[in-house]
Every structure is written in C-alpha cells, then in structure tokens.
Nucleic acid binder design. Structure first.
Lengths: 211, 211
DNA sequence: ACGCACATGTAAGCAGTTACATGATTTG
DNA sequence: CAAATCATGTAACTGCTTACATGTGCGT
C-alpha cells in the first residue's frame, strides 16, 4: 500500500507536443524534427525523449497511435483525441511556470578573477558564436514568414509574436557580449584596480537603456 | 560487477557554490540565501538542494565542513580546499553549457487559437507581473552597487557586468509584453482574419530594432 | 506566548538525458 | 555501394524538486 498517489500529470512538454498535434496528425519522427525547429530556443528537450512522451500521452488517452507503412518502413502517426484537446484548453488557464534562464557564462564572469583575462575573453567569444548560430537560424525563420513559405503560414499572426520576442532576445545577448568584450579589451589583468571607476557609468547606462 | 563507472563529476551547480566559497567560508544556510539572491535569474536551483550539494562537495574533497555553535544552535561552515580552487580554475576553461531558456508563455502563444483572447491577455499579464518582480529585485541590487553598500563591493567591476545583462534582459521581456498586449488589445477573437496583414510589419520592425 | 528568522537534513520520486540498439529507403 | 536521412525504441542513470521532519534563539 503506497502512501503516495502517482498522478501521471501532463507536463508543459506534453502540451508543447499536443499543441502541434492539435493542427494535424504527425509521426513521432516529424514531431521530433519540428519540435526541435520551433521550440529549441524557449523549451528545448532532447529529441529522443519525444518518443517516450508520445507513448505516455497515448497511455493517458490524449492521443491515438496508428502504424503506417511506406514500403516496409513503418512509422507511427499520432492524432490528438477530444480528451487531448480538452486538456490543452485547460492548460491555457493554468498557472504559468516561472521564466527560467540558464546562462553559464554569467556564472563564469562572477568567478573570472580566479582565472585569466584570456579565459574570460574566450568565454565571451563562445557566447558570441552560440548567438550567431541562434540568430542565423532565427533569420531563416523570419525570411520564411516574409516569403509566405513557412509551414502553417495561416498561424503566422500568433507565431510571429514569438519570433518577435526571439529576435529581440538574441539581439540582447549579442549587444551585451559586444559591450562586455569592449570593456574587457581594456583590461590587462583581473585586479580591481582602475576598473571600479566604470561601475557607476555601466549601471547608469543600463538603467537609461531601459527607459 | 557494474559496467558503468559512476564518475561523480562536478556540475555547473557545484561551481556556482565553489565560486562563492572561493571568496570566504560560508555556512550552508548563508549560501542558500545568498545563492538564491545572486543566481536566481540565471542559474536557479531549489534552496533545499544546496545542503545536499555541499555534502557532496565535502565527500569529493572540494570543501571542508566545520560545525560551529552560537549558543547551542549549530551551523555548518564550509571552506574551499586547494583541490576546490583547482577545480574552479579548470572549469573556467571547460566547454560552456548552451544557453537555455524556458518561457512557457511563448508556448501558450503558439496554442492561443485554441483558447480565448482573454486567456491570452491573462497569460501576458502574468508575465508582466513576473517581470515586475524581477525588475524590482534587480533595481535594488543596482542601487546597492551605486551606494557602494553591496556585499563584495570590491568585486563590483565583474559583478556589474552581470547586472548589466540582467537589466537589459528584463527590459527585453517587458517591452515584448507591451508590444504584444498592444497588438492583442485590437483583437476581438482569435481567427486569422484581419490579423495576418500586420505580420510583415512586425517582422520588419523586429529586424530593424536589432540593427 | 507566538511568530519569524535561523539552521539542517533525508527519502521518495520524477522529468529528462545518454548510451545502446536496430533496421529501411533514398540520393549521389 | 556508401552515406545520409528516415524511423523507432529501451534501460540506466542523474540532477533536481518536494514533502516530510526537527529543532534554536530572538524580538515583541
């Protein structure tokens, strides 16, 4: 007799999948690819996990699975059930998960005085590279919507609200890297001497950038 | 005989703790509070987990624990070891974890056409509230640095680089909410009609905001 | 006397990742 | 005929959260 009830509740990841399935049936493979494409920058999950999650949704009656064949290659096509649609609608009213950011480079800036100026610069350059990749990806999406060639173009009126955010978000990181590299370029070492004077200007500038 | 070697490697969370311990000894409680204060917006972890992580760092020889008493109330004070410092320095050169954002509201925007305009507005208002809290917290930190009253003021020259990012990041979310609420206010329902025309303008504006 | 801040821990569980595993079809 | 892409799954593990649990000391 177990003291805990194991409520196999749906997670936000479940709803991410269900919101795709609400538009049309998808194979697990298609979803893995598409989900990576659309959600990688604000709800990233490993491709592999999607197969498990879909089986779980099937077991919970949120989707139905159907094996299809192309030649002798099988694929499992999932469709949303009325229960799945109902769950999705309920989710739209449920409490919102807190915004969560994991940005290891900021942690390294904190610890930077233990290392070298070159290490700090290298960290910043890695961020620059990562953002460049993100931006290239995002720009391609923007272009698709401008061309009218994006999948689900009829959903563009809501989806571009997301693209709008992402464009700004990436630019925010990029600009921070630029400012910070410019500052660190003037440093010969990581001692506080001669560096504390700029603190006030930096904070005031950040504040005024906001207004 | 197990086939896997369980390498109890240090995680980024370990280094977050070690980077505080590199400055001075801390009690577990102090760290729980301080870490929440400083890292909550770019490397959030549950307070409770810090006690476990510190024990693990102790077992790995990265820190030493010492029981102290104030009256009969005990507290465990942790100090970093030379091995801990060495590990921290190595980390500064190791590969950087990818930037990871979890922003459920964007997922709900994707799924918005299944629900109502009011639900979408409510979601955006929740984000606005969350950002207001973040901003208030951040503003207090900024003020401390300006007053010179922040803990570890001598580290301000690096720490304010982080504060600089955070200020911009929060403003980015806020401005997106403002833009998006303004758009959604003009909507009577969630059909695509009459809404697709603004897509191009939105994408072009986002692009030009960046340059 | 009560409530808040100080102070610490454990056990169970879970969401998600990673490594391992297999095979079919298309394209160059 | 090799490589890329299509296509799917499982077992083990792990980092972290949550619920549960237990006190002390101080201020009002």
């Amino acid at each position: 007799m177990s003291r805990r009830r194991t409520q196999p509740a749906l997670t936000t990841t479940s709803f991410a999948l269900l919101s795709h399935l609400a538009l049309r049936p998808w194979s697990a493979y298609e979803l893995a690819v598409e989900r990576v494409r659309y959600f990688r920058y604000f709800w990233a999950r490993a491709e592999r996990g999607i197969y498990q999650e879909l089986k779980r949704l099937d077991a919970l009656g949120m989707v139905t699975a159907k094996k299809e064949y192309r030649g002798r290659r099988a694929r499992t096509v999932y469709s949303i059930t009325p229960a799945g649609v109902a769950a999705l609608r309920d989710w739209l009213e449920s409490p919102l998960a807190p915004i969560s950011l994991e940005f290891e480079a900021l942690l390294r800036v904190f610890a930077a005085p233990l290392g070298t100026v070159d290490q700090l610069k290298a960290t910043l350059e890695k961020v620059r590279g990562a953002v460049a990749e993100m931006t290239a990806f995002n720009d391609a999406i923007v272009q698709e919507y401008l061309d009218g060639s994006a999948p689900f173009q009829h959903e563009a009126y809501v989806r571009t609200l997301v693209v709008d955010f992402l464009t700004d978000w990436m630019a925010t990181i990029e600009r921070w890297v630029d400012r910070t590299v410019a500052e660190v370029e003037t440093w010969k070492d990581l001692s506080p001497e001669g560096k504390q004077e700029r603190v006030r200007a930096r904070l005031v500038a950040a504040r005024s950038r906001r207004d």
